[in-house]
Design a binder for these strands. Sequence first.
RNA 1: GCGCGCUUAGCUCAGGGGUAGAGCGGCUGCUUUACACGCAGUUGGUCGGAGGUUCAAAUCCUUCAGCGCGCACCA
Length: 656
Amino acid sequence: MPELAPAYDPSKVEDRLYRQWTERGDYQANPASAQPAFSIVIPPPNVTGILTLGHVLNNTIQDILARRARLLGQEVLWLPGTDHAGIATQTVVERALKKEGKIKHRDDLGREEFLKQVWQWKEKHGGIIIQQLKKLGASCDWSRERFTMDPAYSACVQQVFVDLHKKGLIYRGRRMVNWCPVSRTALSDEEVIMKEQRGHLWHFRVAVQGEKDRFLTIATTRPETIPGDTAIAVHPKDPRYASLIGKFALRPLPPEQPESLRRIPIVGDEHVEMEFGTGVLKVTPAHDPADFAIGQRHQLPAIEVIDESGHMNAAAGEKLAGLDRIKARATAAEQLQELGCLEKEEAYTNQVGYSERADVPVEPRLSEQWFLKYPSAEKSREVIASGKMRFFPDRWTKVYDHWMGNLQDWCISRQLWWGHRIPVWYRAKEIRCQVDSPGEGWTQDPDVLDTWFSSWLWPFATMGWPAKTPELKKFYPTTDLVTGPDIIFFWVARMIMAGFEYMGELPFRNVYFTGLIRDAKGRKLSKSLGNSPDPLDLISKYGADGLRFGLLRIAPQGVDIRYDEKQIEEGRNFANKLWNACRFRQQQGPCDSQADPTKHPRTPFSDHLLAELDALEKELEKMYANYEFSQIAQALYGFVWDEFCARFIETAKASG
RNA sequence: GCGCGCUUAGCUCAGGGGUAGAGCGGCUGCUUUACACGCAGUUGGUCGGAGGUUCAAAUCCUUCAGCGCGCACCA
């Protein structure tokens, strides 16, 4: 055996060993094994994504769990795969095509041609993240890699839709939804991110009809929606205004409209806060969820004034028509000024919903969509509340419970092309919900399903469901799930419900939530900020072990992580320390691997070391049970560095 | 507004009733025959503020403040 180099060079070791392990089939799961099962399904990364430090953390933890289970003699399945990530992927491809000047909008290509482009993109970029996971050393069973758009997986998705429709849990309805004017699709409530927005509160006056010199002053942040107002609401018990309920007022915009069209009723509704603003609310049922509800309570008409691209339409009046809604806001305020009914304009900060992907304000919009009433919700809530399934850290149970206690129907249809097509067919007035076309003359619903409507089936759809496969029998329910708390509603909660509904059992026993990785200043890592280091660069600089160990050591349970490259350097140093401990041993002459350790001559030093090792093992076992990964890393670091190297080896040297 | 989390050495974080800890950094030495990705030393903190419980509080309770996050139909 050649003498080891003085410094550890991971590049000479990692690829070779990984190839050896995979070629030997070390990570292949055997459903026929008699060993107890241990299984994890990977949170599938976006198929066109690239590896981030978040993935590194997440997958390193899964790798630790999987490798430890193998050491304990369990039959391990770590099932990998990717997610088609509907809106994210479609947005990326659309943007790229626009940049190349090929299209202005996806309509320029048409559905079929556009999808061809997305598949091409997927072929080109689809394998990257899988290769990167291998580079990281992930011990997945690659022979079972899945993709949410695989034919078999797609069939599961469609079947589940048809089934839930049959059960009456999926229905179509014309409702107020979150609309993204850039992607031009409906979104679920979870895809809307509330952001603080600095804007204005405009106070304007409207005349009450039949009451001489009686005016109402209304405060609004959205004057551009005035043409869509169909009522004015006050609190029924408000002494200032209650007497006006039932009378009418004149909506100021659009001014060119005859008064008869601008006449809107004053209604009494308890939703109005007397203390806020002037205590008078304008009601725009077509463009605000709360106003929509008021509209329903008072049978108000809804006038749409904003179109699907976020521009004002003809109903908004000649001055506003065609303007972007944001521009129209200022213009509408000017109009009020010109009409002499603007009383004041004050700076105002409020919370506005933004589209997660396109990062623009969401437009509440009335449209026809498919909705799902969540199945198995009670059981799913109970399983966490009772502690039968556990979250680590435990505090997420409260967050989960709160969400589960306030479930809103899930808007699952998307006006996109990349995804699973809704299995509903139309012919004239007939509608049918089934997987295959009923035949001649039927056209399929053009919409696709929310990406999460496919990923919520992940734990069993990847194992061959609906067939009763040996994989499902052996490895379902899975043991652990490792994911970020940011997708607790998107994914975790929904998987639990789907698991109960279709497998009659929970999908996993424990969920470990990682922290979010931030930069040294505490900001989220993001491409646009340029503070997101490329893990592949770090691997070539410090080695995969250095990266993994360094990151793990600063990743305490449930707390956000402040990333610092220095820590990765320490990870590398630790790998080097181990290397050199071996190098030292090697230099002491040959080592008999068959030797009986109980017959080896002992010294006070070796006894001490063995006692420490014993204590370490007990400690580690406890820490594994509690998923305390950073403390595990810390304990190993301390033992190797201080006990083994600094004390044991040094005393060994001294005693010759 | 409601809820959750965080605040401990210059930095990143452990600890969770009984003498304040680690790594990094700083400083001082080391071409010591495993490792300078190293070794030997050393510096450094009224544990966010204020009250309380206790023989004893960084730790438990109350309260305040700052930061972060989640939820929420105050325009």
